[in-house]
Amino acid sequence: MTSYDHLLRALNEAGVEFIIIGGAAAVAHGASRLTEDLDIVYRRTDENIHRLVQALAPYQPYLRGAPPGLPFIWDERTVRRGLNFALMTSLGAIDLFGEVTGGGSYDDLLAHTVQLQIFGGVCLFVRLEKLIELKRAAGRPKDLETIAELEMILEERGRVGERTL
């Protein structure tokens, strides 16, 4: 099971610039679906990559689904040469996106975020409308199922005059 509180605390304490997307963002907006990993879009500056690598290094990041023993070095060079990483850590699963389908990079998504307090810290979450766009662009069956629930949440908020997160 993924320890969201510990992963988010590690990222925040290291000063990593990231936006929470995916299932964790859906739950923050009121969805009932459980998610097994933390999905984030991270800023791809040299400084931020350094902070990201340092934040996760103590938790033995390894490519999720890769055979045991496959050589993998978690360092700045690896992150710079890659873009998106599905990792398993001692704190659980985390997916790191340098870019996400339908949303682009951290800088592209920044205008579509909201700050929320979670686990004693503040994190950026993608707004509900943008999350729906991201899920639609991904097009996976599980995303399409989630869209229906997210659209109902959006519609309900509109009926009661709530500002959309």
Rank of each mutant, 00 (worst) to 15 (best):
L87A: 12
V53K: 00
A138V: 06
V53Q: 08
A57N: 09
Y106C: 14
G120F: 14
S90W: 02
P58N: 05
R44C: 07
R77Y: 12
K130N: 06
R80E: 08
Y42G: 02
A93S: 13
V100F: 12
R80M: 09
G82P: 08
H50S: 05
L109W: 00
I118V: 12
Y62E: 13
T45K: 14
T113E: 09
A138K: 07
Q60N: 12
Q54F: 14
D75I: 04
L70H: 11
L131Q: 10
A57M: 06
K130I: 01
R140M: 05
E129K: 08
A93Q: 13
A55V: 01
R140F: 05
R80L: 10
L109H: 01
G98R: 08
L128H: 01
G121S: 12
E99C: 06
L128P: 10
L63H: 00
T89I: 08
R43E: 07
E76K: 04
P67R: 14
L63W: 05
D108K: 13
R81Y: 13
T113F: 10
L70Y: 08
G139H: 04
L91D: 05
Y42V: 07
L56D: 13
D46I: 12
I40F: 03
E47I: 13
D108G: 04
I73M: 12
S90P: 07
L134R: 05
E129C: 07
K135I: 09
I49P: 00
D46W: 09
G98Q: 05
F125Y: 15
F72Y: 13
V100Q: 08
L116Q: 15
L38C: 03
I118E: 13
G120L: 07
P67S: 02
I40T: 10
E76C: 11
A55C: 00
L38S: 01
L83M: 14
I40P: 11
L83C: 11
R44W: 08
V122D: 14
K130H: 11
A111S: 09
I94C: 05
I94R: 07
I40H: 03
E99K: 09
G98A: 07
E47L: 15
P68E: 13
S90R: 10
R140S: 07
N48A: 03
L116R: 15
D95I: 07
N84M: 02
Y62T: 01
D75K: 09
G65Q: 04
P58T: 06
N84Q: 04
R43L: 10
R51G: 01
L56K: 01
E129F: 08
E129P: 14
L87Y: 10
I49F: 05
R140L: 08
L52C: 03
A55K: 00
R140P: 00
L124I: 10
R77I: 04
V122A: 14
